[in-house]
């Protein structure tokens, strides 16, 4: 039984156009939805709140003793971007991503619009591909939102000066900006595996909330497993293991080899989750 489409020669030439059409429409749908805009606004509030709190407490002993990046924010606004991303990484970003990617297919199934799309017809492979791309775009937009708002807030509150790297060396503010953008790009990239897990879960249920909660749970469980030294053997394969490697951008020389494992693990998760989602979605009965 395979109710999926089969690519007939007559449809092949317009597939590219079909994807583009659909992509525009889906992007508008996801980024135009109020709930999703609110999610982005919520993320945007993080660097602002963080900046304001640090600004208020910066003269006190407490302020300058914050953990890691947070302690450096008062000295250089560029660090607010890093600190805000670091703050959102364990929970807020997975939550945002879980909501949007878990909604990808399950949301359409829940409203019943999935059957309309399939009978338009939108070939199932194309629909899944576009849904995944849009979910990835949203994850990137979430990270970008934090980065841009963090940059502006940091600049306004603390000014931007030459960047002191983790090694103690100093680079110019311009070069520092690139480093911070590198951090944001790496974090965005690190989310791709989780996005795909969310899309996979959303093909398995007709209840979007279940897929959303499942996605967040995957991120949390992965982080918990990563914190258990007894399981060090499986750590390199965990979705969240290399998330923190964005710090590589704050060393004197950015070593691509040090970034590779994180990228590879994400690619592997994308491939794995994507394949399962595809084989499931192209053969599943749509009875919603």
């Amino acid at each position: 039984m395979s109710p999926a489409e089969t690519a007939t020669p007559t449809t092949a030439p317009r597939t590219g156009g079909g994807v583009r059409h659909l992509l525009g429409s889906e992007l508008r749908l996801v980024f135009g939805r109020r709930r999703n805009v609110v999610l982005l606004l919520g993320l945007a509030a993080v660097p602002i709140l963080l900046g304001v709190v640090i600004f208020i407490t910066q003269d006190t002993v407490v302020g300058s003793q914050g953990p890691g990046f947070i302690g450096r924010v008062a000295g250089n606004g560029l660090f607010l971007v890093v600190a805000a991303l670091f703050t959102c990484l364990p929970f807020l970003l997975p939550l945002t991503i879980g909501i949007v990617s878990g909604d990808a297919i399950a949301g359409e199934a829940a409203t019943g619009t999935l059957r309309s799309l399939i009978t338009v017809p939108v070939p199932r492979t194309r629909l899944l591909l576009v849904k995944a791309i849009v979910a990835l775009c949203f994850a990137a937009a979430a990270v970008l939102t934090i980065a841009i708002v963090g940059l502006i807030t940091g600049w306004v509150l603390f000014g931007i000066s030459d960047l002191v790297l983790l090694s103690g060396d100093t680079i110019t503010a311009g070069a520092g900006l690139f480093r911070v953008l590198g951090v944001a790009a790496y974090v965005a990239m690190s989310m791709s595996g989780l996005v795909m897990v969310g899309v996979l879960l959303s093909t398995l249920t007709e209840t979007p909330v279940a897929a959303m909660a499942g996605t967040v749970t995957v991120a949390v469980v992965s982080a918990v497993l990563d914190s258990l030294p007894q399981l060090s053997a499986i750590h390199p394969g965990l979705l969240t293991h290399y998330w923190i490697d964005f710090a590589e951008f704050l060393r004197l020389e950015v070593d691509p080899a040090a970034l590779a494992p994180g990228l590879l693990v994400q690619a592997a998760w994308v491939l794995l989750a994507g394949t399962i989602a595809w084989s499931r979605f192209t053969t599943a009965d749509i009875s919603s």
Partner: peptide
Amino acid sequence: MPAAGTDVLPRVGALIEGPAFHPW
């Protein structure tokens, strides 16, 4: 069907088990 769905469904209008649209 379903093999020729991509070709034939554009010529078919369907309303299945009640209307379904995005509420917002």
